[in-house]
Amino acid sequence: MERVHSLRMMSRFLLLHSLILISLFIAAATANTSSTITDRDALLALKAHITHDPTNFLAKNWNTSTPVCNWTGVACDVHSHRVTILNISSLNLTGTIPSHLGNLASLQSLNLSCNRLSGSIPSAIFTIYTLKYVSFRENQLSGAFPSFIFNKSSLQHLDFSRNTLSGEIPANICSSLPFLDYLSLQENMFHGAIPSNLSNCTYLRILSLSYNDFSGAIPKDIGNLTKLKELYLGRNRLQGEIPREFGNLTELELMSLLENDLQGMIMNFLQFYSSLCLHLYSFVCSSIMLHVLLFFLSD
């Protein structure tokens, strides 16, 4: 009798356990489906904001008859099936960027470069916790820096170059971007001083601020960016002398400072040598000039 009772208890336990597992499986499947629909709707919102698609790329490749993860320009996580990569660059698309893209909660890489997108950059995009790579290069975007960008500690690559963005770079730009290694704002309409806080982006390898309207002195704190390999500050209204702290940039390979209002003996050297370089192989000459300059600054 006792054995029968034990078997009944065991059967009830196994049945309960099975029901719990089935419930969890159904809940997970439902959540996955819901998340996939959220991602699909975000991408369809982007498609709806495109007013001209000369190659009919989106019309041919983005439709509800196929899973989102099979759409051209989209990649997904193999387990969650959430969108992790969105790349629709160089398609000559005209339109605006919807805030719905902020619903792509697992997005890691966003590349909308080389199109004709206009309007502002939605702050909602920078609420995505996983975002590491963003490129809006060569569009017609306007307005100031997105306000939420400074909460994105995951960002590593940020390219806003060749747009019509304006305003000042916020002084705290690097306070919450500890892993940023690429920052390009060149060929925009930014003005004001270059923030000394850029020195807090200690992983920066490439910093490009050329072809803007920056003024004032070059912050000596940039000399603390010891991982920097390329530095472009040309075509602005910068004044004063080149900081001697640049002598700390031992990894630097390329640098442009010309067409500013910089003065001093070091700048005279650069101007003389760059003129001489016109008659020589430019890359070799520039490399020699840079190494001589860094040696002089570190002396």
Results as ranks from 00 to 15, higher is better:
residue 2 E to V: 09
residue 4 V to F: 13
residue 8 R to W: 12
residue 9 M to E: 08
residue 18 S to G: 11
residue 19 L to F: 14
residue 24 L to F: 13
residue 25 F to E: 12
residue 26 I to M: 14
residue 28 A to N: 11
residue 28 A to R: 11
residue 31 A to M: 12
residue 33 T to G: 10
residue 34 S to Q: 15
residue 34 S to L: 12
residue 35 S to K: 12
residue 40 R to D: 02
residue 42 A to S: 10
residue 50 I to H: 07
residue 50 I to W: 07
residue 51 T to Q: 10
residue 52 H to F: 14
residue 54 P to N: 05
residue 56 N to Y: 02
residue 57 F to S: 07
residue 63 N to G: 02
residue 65 S to Y: 08
residue 67 P to H: 12
residue 67 P to N: 04
residue 68 V to N: 06
residue 70 N to I: 02
residue 77 D to Q: 04
residue 80 S to L: 13
residue 82 R to S: 03
residue 82 R to I: 06
residue 89 S to N: 08
residue 96 T to F: 08
residue 97 I to S: 11
residue 99 S to A: 15
residue 101 L to P: 04
residue 105 A to G: 06
residue 120 S to P: 05
residue 122 P to S: 03
residue 125 I to T: 05
residue 125 I to M: 09
residue 126 F to G: 13
residue 128 I to H: 01
residue 129 Y to R: 13
residue 131 L to A: 07
residue 135 S to G: 04
residue 138 E to Y: 11
residue 138 E to T: 11
residue 143 G to Y: 08
residue 156 Q to E: 15
residue 156 Q to R: 10
residue 165 L to T: 06
residue 167 G to H: 08
residue 168 E to T: 10
residue 168 E to F: 10
residue 169 I to P: 05
residue 174 C to P: 06
residue 178 P to D: 08
residue 179 F to D: 13
residue 179 F to V: 13
residue 182 Y to K: 04
residue 183 L to I: 00
residue 186 Q to I: 03
residue 191 H to Y: 11
residue 191 H to T: 00
residue 194 I to E: 01
residue 205 R to H: 09
residue 206 I to E: 15
residue 210 S to C: 03
residue 213 D to R: 10
residue 215 S to Y: 03
residue 216 G to L: 02
residue 221 D to N: 10
residue 222 I to F: 03
residue 224 N to L: 07
residue 227 K to S: 15
residue 230 E to S: 15
residue 230 E to V: 13
residue 234 G to W: 00
residue 235 R to Y: 07
residue 236 N to I: 01
residue 237 R to G: 05
residue 239 Q to H: 02
residue 241 E to L: 08
residue 243 P to C: 05
residue 254 L to R: 14
residue 258 L to G: 07
residue 269 F to Y: 15
residue 272 F to Y: 07
residue 272 F to R: 12
residue 277 C to K: 01
residue 280 L to A: 13
residue 280 L to R: 12
residue 281 Y to S: 15
residue 293 L to F: 00
residue 294 L to T: 00
residue 297 L to W: 00
residue 298 S to R: 09
